[in-house]
Computed example of a mutant assay.
Amino acid sequence: MTNDIAPAAARPAAGNTPPEAVLTVRDLNVVYRTDPPVHAVKDVSLTLNRGEILGLAGESGCGKSTLAYAVNRLHEWPAEVTSGSVTFHDRDGGDLDLLALRDEELRRFRWAKLSMVFQGAMSALNPVISVRAQLEDVLTTHRPGMSRQERRERCAEVLRLVGVEPRRMHSFPHELSGGMRQRVMIAMALLLDPQVMIMDEPTTALDVLVQRGILREILRLRDRLGFAVVFITHDLPLLLELSDRIAVMLRGEIVEYDTAETIHRRPRHPYTRTLLDSFPSLTGDRGAFLRTGAAARSDAPGEEDAR
């Protein structure tokens, strides 16, 4: 298959200015108060720079989505952030302690400064409300001064940005294809020009061709609009193509955190090597892959969990 997404190392960062942090996570811990308690996120520290795509990789259940929900304050009991900090560095000036925001402050912050594209657009979108009504609801809530015509024009604008004909805003979610629904979710996340977008496995349920089309759109929009992205997936090879930096999670911890090029060429942690070796080469010898993969798995900690 031809690689039509430029490798991260070959892409310039958005703009030519030195990296500037937009989101920092320090020593974050999340515990599910079950019996027994589950320590789902353990002392995680990350920095997201402006215009950067930060990939977050790991197997199912390793804590990727839990971390994303903690950053966006979407958890409900029994999940609890027990310690750590999440700081948003607003380009308009000032730092926001996201874990300390009150309900009204948090409501104003979400979507306007930081938006989220959830896994499974059919579950995230309301099935009995048109796309137009759902998009306009975001604008009505956060931009109450906009007229009805201005809201319609903005909705049409963001739909065009993600490659959806504005006439489809009158459709209901079930009338759209899976790829189109996911593009609508991305359009909704872009409505208020956020500085950060968290994407929780946005292409997992899509076929390969649709997936790659959406990934190209994400790169194009990032370069055009300058927002930063946290892209969550279990597909490490995909992140090697898409991301500037990658964090690899295992059992709630970040076990490797480096540039995409370094992780591709010189992975340090055995679990990262196992993830890379779990995807066979399209041109290599099958027997060589099996031997290499088996050797990597034998060195990896927690072999049973890694499988």
Rank of each mutant, 00 (worst) to 15 (best):
A8S: 15
A8P: 08
A8M: 10
P12K: 14
A14T: 08
G15M: 12
P19R: 12
L28R: 03
N29P: 01
D35N: 13
P36W: 02
P36N: 07
P37F: 05
P37K: 06
V38R: 08
A40E: 06
D43S: 12
V44M: 01
L48Y: 01
L48D: 01
E52Q: 11
I53F: 07
L54T: 06
L54P: 02
A57E: 04
S60L: 04
G61P: 04
C62T: 14
G63W: 03
K64D: 01
Y69T: 14
A70N: 02
V71I: 15
G84H: 10
F88Q: 07
F88A: 07
H89D: 03
D92E: 12
L96Q: 14
D97W: 06
L99S: 08
A100N: 08
R102V: 13
D103A: 12
R107Y: 13
R108G: 12
F109E: 02
F109V: 04
A112K: 13
L114N: 00
L114V: 11
V117A: 04
G120R: 02
A121Y: 01
A121D: 04
N126F: 11
P127N: 09
V128W: 00
V131D: 00
R132H: 02
R132S: 04
A133E: 11
A133Q: 13
A133L: 11
Q134W: 13
E136C: 13
E136Q: 12
V138Y: 00
T141K: 06
H142D: 08
R143P: 10
Q149V: 14
Q149G: 05
C155E: 00
C155I: 05
L159R: 07
V162A: 08
G163A: 04
M169P: 00
H170D: 10
S171C: 14
F172Q: 09
S177H: 07
G179L: 06
G179S: 07
M180L: 13
M180D: 02
R181G: 04
V184G: 04
I186V: 12
M188W: 01
A189L: 04
L191E: 03
L192P: 06
L192G: 09
Q195D: 13
M199C: 14
D200K: 03
P202M: 05
T203I: 12
T204G: 09
A205T: 09
V208L: 11
L209W: 00
R212S: 05
R212A: 06
I214A: 02
L215P: 05
L219D: 11
L221I: 14
R222S: 08
A228W: 00
V229E: 05
V230M: 14
V230A: 01
T233L: 04
T233C: 06
L236G: 08
L236I: 09
L238K: 03
L238V: 12
E241W: 00
D244W: 10
R245I: 10
G252M: 02
G252V: 01
T259V: 11
T259I: 12
A260F: 07
H264E: 15
R266I: 04
P267Q: 14
P267N: 14
R268A: 11
H269G: 13
T272F: 03
R273D: 13
T274P: 00
S278T: 10
S278C: 09
F279M: 11
A288E: 15
A294E: 10
A294M: 08
S298Y: 07
